[in-house]
Design a protein around this nucleic acid. Structure first.
Lengths: 91, 91
DNA sequence: ATGGACTTGTCAGATTTTGGCTAATTTAAT
DNA sequence: ATTAAATTAGCCAAAATCTGACAAGTCCAT
């Protein structure tokens, strides 16, 4: 998963533990673990908080977060590419 | 909405009434009306049935249906374009 | 002003999502 | 190999969302 992969990188760079970030986000550790692995999706607010904690651009993480959701939506569809292109046109 | 616009066109081309299509899909007319206007989203099965009824490529309607969902997901996000591009890369 | 087509609003029931708990597994160090 | 810490898996109830149906409304032509 897009966001999960990135925040895992960031967490390891800064040598933080899942439970520390979980505490910051006020969720439990298993939940944070799931977000990192993309098993659960973070909420917008949590992504923003993570950007602050890691001191990276909010936009970067929000973009990955959104991309992950789009990917989940289209991944099993034969017409995924075409659909994406159509949306891209109209943005 | 992508799909709604298209099935309205098709319905008018063939001079059919909403209630006729609603009957085919086994839903009530208000529901069909909402699907056409994009107020409710059709389910996959209904889209396929509609393609058969209108005698158009299943793929065409499924693509529009998917595009509509993607659009709903990203439309209010500042990072929509970038996110879409990232997904496009990885398909 | 009646009738037919379509739309709007509402609502309970069904389905999904969510958060947190416990327990299992993996990892790292001694 | 044993322990302790970190991470993951599985489960369950509460909350939120989605669904289908109905009643009532508008709009338009006759």
């Amino acid at each position: 998963m897009y966001l999960g992969k990135r925040i895992k990188e960031l967490r390891e760079e800064k040598a933080l533990l899942q439970r520390q970030l979980a505490a910051e986000l006020e969720i439990d550790t298993p939940m944070y673990s799931k977000i990192e692995r993309g098993e659960r999706k973070a909420k917008r607010e949590q992504v923003i908080k993570l950007a602050k904690l890691f001191q990276v651009e909010e936009k970067e993480l929000l973009m990955l977060w959104l991309a992950g959701q789009v990917y989940e939506l289209v991944k099993d569809e034969e017409v995924a590419k075409e659909a994406i292109k159509v949306v891209e046109q109209n943005l």
